[in-house]
Amino acid sequence: MHDLLIRNGWIIDGGGSPRFHGDVAVQDGRITRIGRIRERARREIDAEGHIVAPGFVDGHTHMDAQVFWDRLGSCSSYHGVTTVVMGNCGFTLAPCAERDAGFVFRNLERAEDIAPEAMQAGIEWSWETFPEFLDTIDALPKGIHYAGYIGHSALRTYVMGERAFTDQATPDELARMCALAKEAVEAGAMGFSTSRTTNHVTADDRPVASRAADWDEVRAIVCAVGETGRGVFEIAGEAPGRSPERLRDYHERLRDLAVDSGVTQTWGMFSTRRAPDFWRPYFDLAEETAAALRVLNIYAP
């Protein structure tokens, strides 16, 4: 007897095949059969008129704080999402000691519209390093699965304190950030994320910490992640406007970083009514880089 049987649904298996009408059997938490199933199960669900499909993966979320007070992972879970990736755009709660939580709250507050008071009330702090943060997330009761990047803004404030919002890192500070990023990825972080967009500011209209870094700093950290042989680099990108020269310079830096580090990239591809063809150079970049390495995934926010 099966543990669970979902009957009479329209099954879309995610492999690209046409949907079909059938049943799905589950045993010990794993799908064991798909098709027309005559056996009974301890629990049966009639899915007539509904789609039965694998859970969606949302690769760009900011649920780093919400996970502490929202067990369901709403509203992602309402739409068939069963796995989310948080920590995008350089905004994470680790590494950070509890006494310095104001730094990471400052980075999150405006960009994600979460009041510091809500985070203080909803988060029980039990970590300092990113591996400790992963252990904390793992222990929380959750209705969906979570993965996360180590964020550049949190990394900077952990190493540099208040100077992270205004100054360049010293060689020693940069070396420490590289080591911490490697440690995080080796412990299970999805990779490293950063923001260079002018849209990301603090509540007092200052740039978030990652925006104070130069490209050499970004490059060094991504290359350090590359030494692990794993991980993804996520970037909320620069705003070169419609200048072909500035756009090309930015794209060449992304391309060279992907090739030199061997780290997969994911970045936003935007288009607006005012610039309906703005996306095209990003597709050209993907093809250009892919000609040298298999590196790029593209998300459209």
Rank of each mutant, 00 (worst) to 15 (best):
G102A: 14
A94G: 08
H152Y: 06
C89I: 11
I114Y: 05
A94T: 08
G90H: 01
T136K: 12
G148T: 06
G90E: 04
Y146C: 04
M160S: 11
E109L: 08
W69E: 09
Y158R: 14
C89E: 07
H152A: 07
L72E: 11
T82Q: 01
M86R: 06
Q120E: 15
F68C: 05
S77G: 03
V84R: 00
D100C: 11
V81N: 00
A101K: 15
S76K: 00
A94V: 10
L140C: 08
D100M: 09
R106T: 11
E128I: 09
L72K: 12
G143N: 09
A115E: 11
P116G: 03
L72Q: 11
S76R: 00
M119P: 02
G122M: 10
G148I: 01
H152W: 03
D100N: 14
V84Q: 00
A121N: 11
E98F: 08
E112T: 10
Q120T: 12
W127E: 11
L72N: 09
G87H: 03
S153T: 09
T136C: 14
L108W: 05
D100Q: 12
H79L: 07
T83G: 08
F103L: 12
G90W: 02
G87N: 08
T157F: 06
W69F: 15
M160C: 10
